[in-house]
Design a protein around this nucleic acid. Structure first.
Length: 291
DNA sequence: ATGGCTAACAACGTTAGA
């Protein structure tokens, strides 16, 4: 069906003894189920985190994904939009979901993943607390007074850094997801032209930085590939050819707790996936973390 | 501020994405 996975596989020799986490805004898990299974075969993640599954729980393809090697699952979805899922080869000890910004929507799911022989070394944790987050897009107009969607997004981002939803703790943690903010200059194709565009406005990037700092998260992708390297994970559907001008943004993130900062062995942004015939507008991000 | 595109749905136009 698709030609990209072998290319993906070549780029993806796993780091020895590491836990591989893949995060992807899949933009409908039912529409892209087959390609997800194929992606999992080639990229061999231990844990998959999806956003925008766009399906209620009773029509989530749980059985097919269990059969594909991910029997341990935690997911929530809303009809037609939102929706997050954690799919794991390793057992899940606890599941959790939190409500954000006063709404009971499906934008967060957490799981305590039992990492088995990967963890538990001297002073190491035998499990990790994994949060999968889907921050609201925020609509078109970057004015919280005029645009309720933007106000919702700002409130969500404030909560991400307030410690009220995810409390500060010395826990071994990973947070991944579509945070819908491209925080740094080289996270967008044109810093200047996007300063007033939702996803890269100063109020959003400041709030994301505050969230990052508040819980001492390490931005795993930038830790290994610092500025000024240009890194994007999303390209609009609205350009005839996404490669022309490479007009992307880095909206999808992998954050780790400070104890894991030095243990992120490699990260890959799977750009080739943007060329698939039936592609999401986001591409997967893969991180290998030695526990 | 707009265009252009994609997906879901009591679905052939509307809502949402970002």
């Amino acid at each position: 069906m698709e030609t990209a996975p072998p290319y993906v596989a070549r780029a993806l020799a796993p780091a020895a003894g590491a836990l591989r986490i893949l995060t992807w805004n899949i933009n409908s898990v039912r529409l892209r189920l087959k390609v997800l299974v194929k992606l999992a075969k080639y990229a061999r993640p231990d844990v998959i985190c999806l956003q925008e599954t766009k399906t209620p729980d009773d029509s989530f393809p749980a059985k097919a994904l269990a059969k594909a090697g991910f029997p341990h699952q935690a997911f929530h979805g809303d009809k037609g939009y939102n929706g997050v899922a954690i799919l794991s080869r390793h057992p899940i000890a606890r599941r959790d979901r939190r409500f954000w910004a006063g709404k009971e929507d499906s934008r967060h799911v957490a799981a305590e993943i039992e990492v088995g022989e990967l963890g538990g070394g001297p002073g190491r944790s035998a499990s990790i607390e994994l949060h999968n987050v889907y921050v609201p897009a925020g609509g078109d107009v970057p004015d919280p007074g005029a645009n309720p969607k933007f106000a919702h997004k700002l409130k969500f981002l404030e909560e991400l850094g307030s410690g009220t939803v995810i409390a500060p703790a010395k826990t071994t943690r990973v947070l991944v997801g579509d945070l819908n903010v491209a925080p740094y200059e080289n996270d967008v194709w044109s810093h200047k032209q996007l300063l007033k565009v939702v996803s890269h406005t100063p109020v959003e990037t400041d709030l994301l930085q505050r969230a990052l700092a508040s819980l001492d998260w390490v931005d795993a992708v930038r830790h290994l590939h610092p500025e000024p390297q240009r890194i994007y994970t999303w390209w609009s559907y609205r350009n005839r050819d996404w490669k022309v001008g490479d007009r992307g943004r880095r909206l999808d993130h992998v954050w780790v707790s400070p104890d894991l900062g030095a243990r992120v062995k490699q990260v890959h942004v799977l750009r080739p996936c943007r060329d698939w015939r039936l592609c999401s507008d986001h591409v997967p991000v893969v991180a290998d973390i030695a526990l």
